[in-house]
Write a protein that binds this DNA or RNA. Structure first.
Lengths: 109, 109
DNA sequence: AATGTTAATCGTAATATTGCGATATAATTA
DNA sequence: TAATTATATCGCAATATTACGATTAACATT
């Protein structure tokens, strides 16, 4: 016991929750915001800007990358991370569908 | 070590990540979708529909409630849950801002 | 009052996450 | 080639999450 029972949920529910989970940490939100603002980004910058150790930043970047939200290319000695456009659009659409599904016409609660 | 260092992030980053975390579980997504589809408050027949124990469902509902995403009113012997319109709108706006901040004009990665 | 129904809470076991020092890896420069 | 720079990975400790049986609490029905 103690492990999420993914098998009883739909593939879509599991995928969306995985994306949300990847984003659901202040450090990872900060990283994403930093990438969005800079329109590019390097790991070393983040270590200076956020107050976390290099190993920790690297781990957070890895999680965002594993989720497919960002992608990185080697840029000489450093690594350049940026948004994965396809995944970004997909999450945006799925969340749009979820949030727009709410119609505040009921008055029961 | 091992505890999220909230103090180094902005209030907004911590709040948004808390909301995302509350949604970032397939069971809680399923609960939200169920509430949205029913378009009216549904009670604890979630136990029948999802394949989780009553204690587990109750715990997930509590987390969504603690995050302010849903609200519940006692309806006789059962409890009626529904979306919290204010929070829902706020999250939608914040996420909209985040996702729209991406301009795919760069060509770095 | 006794019984039944519904949901919350408690306690616990299994597992996952977070953070970081230490170390390894890979490309660059001296 | 050796030293330097930038990231990734390993290993570990602290903490959080997930799930569920058992119990409790609150209301409804008999």
């Amino acid at each position: 016991m103690g492990v999420t029972r993914s098998e009883i949920f739909s593939e879509e529910q599991n995928q969306l929750s995985a994306w949300l989970k990847a984003m659901a940490h202040p450090a990872r939100l900060a990283i994403l915001q930093r990438i969005l603002v800079a329109n590019t980004c390097i790991c070393g910058d983040l270590v200076d800007e956020l107050g976390l150790a290099q190993a920790t930043i690297s781990q957070h970047l890895k999680e965002l990358k594993n989720a497919g939200i960002i992608q990185g290319t080697i840029e000489g000695v450093s690594v350049c991370y940026c948004i994965n456009p396809t995944t970004w659009k997909t999450i945006q659409d799925k969340l749009g569908g979820l949030f727009n599904a709410y119609k505040p016409i009921n008055n029961c609660c």
